[in-house]
Design a protein around this nucleic acid. Structure first.
Lengths: 326, 326
DNA sequence: CTGAAAGCGCTTACAG
DNA sequence: CTGAAAGCGCTTACAG
């Protein structure tokens, strides 16, 4: 089925059918004729021909560092849902945490004439910004921010602050903060920053900062060093994954959480609810963030104005892993 | 940059450049000229024009019921990796467990002239097969099988059998099997079937079969009914998710796993390793299955022969959640 | 091995 | 409101 055949069957010109399809001005009677033929034949326009001419598509490319992460999948679900609603299509490009492939993807997507790019960002390099500039496609960063880009971020700093206030309120005064590299602004810097602010009000509070990777198993290995040498009443972990590792390590040591040691995370991953004890965490609403991201990129694609930075919120989820001290 | 400009710069005809691009016969000297110009200009062919003419793409569409599942993401990672290697592109279509959207996706993908479809199947209906027949695109089922289709399945029955033998070997004789609907052939029927075979050798073995959904929280709710009324020494759960729910429920009741109650799952989800106790399970190799699926669909696309059914294997992962009874 | 020409299915000025 | 024609960037017989 081509537009030509439809035209013939409806007794009009191809251009008229095209106009009908694209909401141009078509007479009432012609409209009805065309409508009928299209319905009868089940005609669907050829996307390639369309894109070839229009030189753009209604596809939004989303670059993700990894597929097997709660944050990623929830965000993608939100993006997908919203994009579908606005008649855009989602194309997912997975880079397996390879920063080179991330850069490549930017160019490849641009080359495929996708309408816009959403980048679930981790670490941003100069090459990223060079790519953004070279391609003529709107880009939205998710999870990290930079003055050179539009971005949607989670409220990491505020989350760090509230979580800090909460554990202070529970009486904790000897704290281990298990963070990640400061190369990751959102997770490594912002969360810690907020947390520091929260405890800066207390004079009798002792905090030692440790660092690990995002890897759960590495957190398990790191545990003895923190616990044995420092003996904190609580370990504040920069991600739920790390918290999960610490919990596992503590339990392998025969410790009772939270009686012997309290633990908190950040993220709100589903599993934190079903561990025993369940983990107190600052939950980011990834799916909603995905919806916002989709709305924003579509606006950018259509040259509408948006804020340089959109902030998606979080909820403190109080559960069982933090002990109330006297 | 178009092929025309390249042709002009290289002093040859468009058709020659096209031939060069597609590996046709081109003289050595012409080849060098074209090569240089392409390198200098950074020319990349327009995908749409290409697909418009060739009437097909190198895109493999993968339809998934949900994005936020371990099995899905691992499978996708495997598919993506392999497809990339063979110069195909992956397009993911998420249906949010809506069977209507699943059918729609089949048609939509076909309409987009994708080369082949991989369907991570759950429940298969007549409409599915009708769609497969109507579209002229090769389809590969993953996770379920049907005589009307090529498929790649996990060795569910064998996994059920081995797991059954294992717990028998550990001395369990009063068993609760917590399964799912038989509408799901792989999970609901095959795993149970294998399990039944395993225990059929024992004369002194008592098994009661229960049913729940795939939902973790529902498994939690279901727990009292099973435990209180039947008091098994072990609950064999048809999925890791269900096992996770049962574990959580047992721990909320103050039970010790495995001393008071043993638990097993199927799947090999990452979390089963970090719960306390870690869960004994039959681990399917989802990523490898994804790789196999990608290889198979590419073969189908290229009209190569493949087996009607490919079976991806599993490993029994013995961990802490099963007690050894005297 | 190489080139001129037709055509893939659509959209978009341009006339009328 | 409607139609004829050109053109988007490529590929593919067909000649040579």
């Amino acid at each position: 089925m081509t537009i030509g055949e439809i035209a013939k069957l409806a007794g009009v010109a191809k251009s008229t059918v095209s106009r009908y399809l694209n909401g141009g001005s078509v007479g009432e009677r012609t409209k009805i004729k065309i409508e009928r033929v299209i319905k009868e034949t089940g005609y669907v326009p050829n996307t390639f021909a369309r894109s070839l001419k229009a030189k753009k598509t209604n596809i939004i490319g989303t670059i993700v560092p990894r597929l097997n992460s709660y944050a990623t999948s929830q965000t993608l679900i939100g993006i997908d849902e919203q994009l579908r609603e606005q008649n855009y299509q989602l194309l997912i490009s997975n880079t397996s945490q390879d920063i080179k492939r991330e850069i490549e993807s930017i160019y490849t997507l641009a080359n495929q004439k996708i309408a816009g790019i959403i980048l679930l960002a981790t670490r941003l390099t100069d090459e990223h910004f060079e790519a953004f500039q070279k391609i003529d496609v709107p880009v939205l960063l998710v999870g990290q921010q930079d003055p050179r880009c539009y971005s949607l971020i989670h409220n990491d700093e505020e989350a760090g602050y509230e979580l800090g206030r909460y554990i202070i309120g529970q009486g904790h005064r000897k704290i281990a903060y298990l963070g990640v590299t400061e190369e990751d602004i959102a997770v490594g810097v912002k969360r810690k920053l907020g947390f520091k602010k929260a405890i800066s009000h207390e004079s009798d509070c002792e905090v030692t900062y440790f660092e690990t990777s995002f890897n759960l198993k590495e957190a398990i290995k790191k545990f003895p060093e923190i616990y044995v040498t420092y003996k904190p009443s609580i370990i504040v972990c920069a991600t739920d994954n790390i918290a999960l590792g610490v919990l596992k390590a503590a339990q392998m040591e025969g410790l009772h959480v939270p009686e012997d040691l309290s633990i908190t995370g950040f993220g709100g991953y589903e599993v934190t609810e079903i561990t025993h004890p369940s983990i107190t965490t600052a939950k980011f609403n990834y799916k909603e963030a995905g919806v916002l991201a989709a709305k924003n990129i579509v606006k950018l694609v259509n040259n509408e104005e948006i804020e340089k930075i959109t902030v998606s919120n979080f909820d403190m989820i109080i559960r069982e892993s933090v002990d109330k001290l006297n």
